[in-house]
């Protein structure tokens, strides 16, 4: 494997966004790119990352390899990279280590690190293709704000989407709260728009602790997409350039 990223910031942010949710992960490398799928310890949330080969330049992967990496270790090494450094990942066939180099674009500084790999026996879940009943695209900062504000009151949030809009509601010991958003097009800045596409109304309840955690990815993208259907996991997607993405799935809370 040899994969060169123009900006180390992208990998730094991705790892930062998922390291509190998942610890030891396989980075599955093949000629289409680098993928990661992992459940959190409690098996409530699932992280699915895809960094397409087009996000790297150049990208070469001659044989499929799984790089088992501890994200705490990776974080330590990535801290040594500046955001605008050029980052290159390298691994040999049947590797013991993954090699990372950080090149400063302005100086002749080159740093180089090896991280020991681990054998991770991870089961891959098959994620079905779902036609979601409701898809909401909103500013990622807005979603972060909603989850943060409501998590101060309650452990859970009910998300209801109807043709009127989307409503986030919580009930806690000190009282209750809600935030409603309507479809809204910001003509001056499309990144601030709220788009709602609905085929049937949905109402689901989720743990806010996980949603707050997902929002650590907000720095990766101005926009976040929430996909919901009744009684299935919520999909929270942060799109990256070149069709790469960071997706989080969260199992709902369901009544008896």
């Amino acid at each position: 494997l040899e994969a060169r990223l123009e900006q180390a910031a992208m990998l730094k942010r991705v790892v930062d966004a998922i390291k509190d949710l998942v610890q030891d992960c396989n980075f599955d490398c093949n000629d289409s790119g680098i993928a990661l799928q992992a459940m959190d310890n409690s098996h409530v949330a699932l992280v699915s990352m895809m960094l397409k080969s087009e996000s790297f330049s150049p990208f070469r992967c001659d044989r499929n390899i799984a790089l088992g990496i501890n994200l705490t270790s990776l974080t330590k090494v990535l801290r040594a990279a500046q955001g605008d450094d050029i980052l290159t990942l390298k691994a040999e066939d049947a590797p013991d280590v993954v090699n990372l180099t950080f090149e400063s674009p302005e100086s002749d500084r080159l740093s180089e690190y090896d991280i020991k790999l681990m054998d991770i026996d991870q089961e891959h879940l098959g994620i079905p293709d779902t036609e979601y009943a409701a898809t909401i695209t909103l500013p990622s900062s807005e979603f972060s704000r909603i989850t943060r504000d409501l998590s101060a009151l309650s452990e859970s949030v009910a998300i209801e989407c109807t043709k009127e809009g989307v409503k986030f509601t919580c009930t806690g010991d000190i009282g209750n709260g809600s935030v409603s958003l309507r479809q809204h097009t910001n003509v001056e800045n499309d990144a601030k728009s709220v788009d709602i596409s609905l085929t049937e109304p949905v109402a689901l309840t989720f743990s806010l602790k996980y949603l707050v955690n997902f929002c650590k990815a907000a720095g990766l993208s101005d926009r976040v997409r929430l996909c919901l259907s009744n009684e299935v996991p919520l999909l929270v997607e942060y799109g990256l350039s070149n069709n790469s993405y960071l997706r989080f799935y969260l199992a709902p809370k369901i009544g008896d």
Binding site: L46, I127, Y249, G255
Partner: peptide
């Protein structure tokens, strides 16, 4: 009361 579901109840195992 609502019960937290597990993600593996929804996604198929290999």
């Amino acid at each position: 009361a609502k019960k937290q579901q597990s993600i593996s109840n929804f996604f198929s195992k290999p």
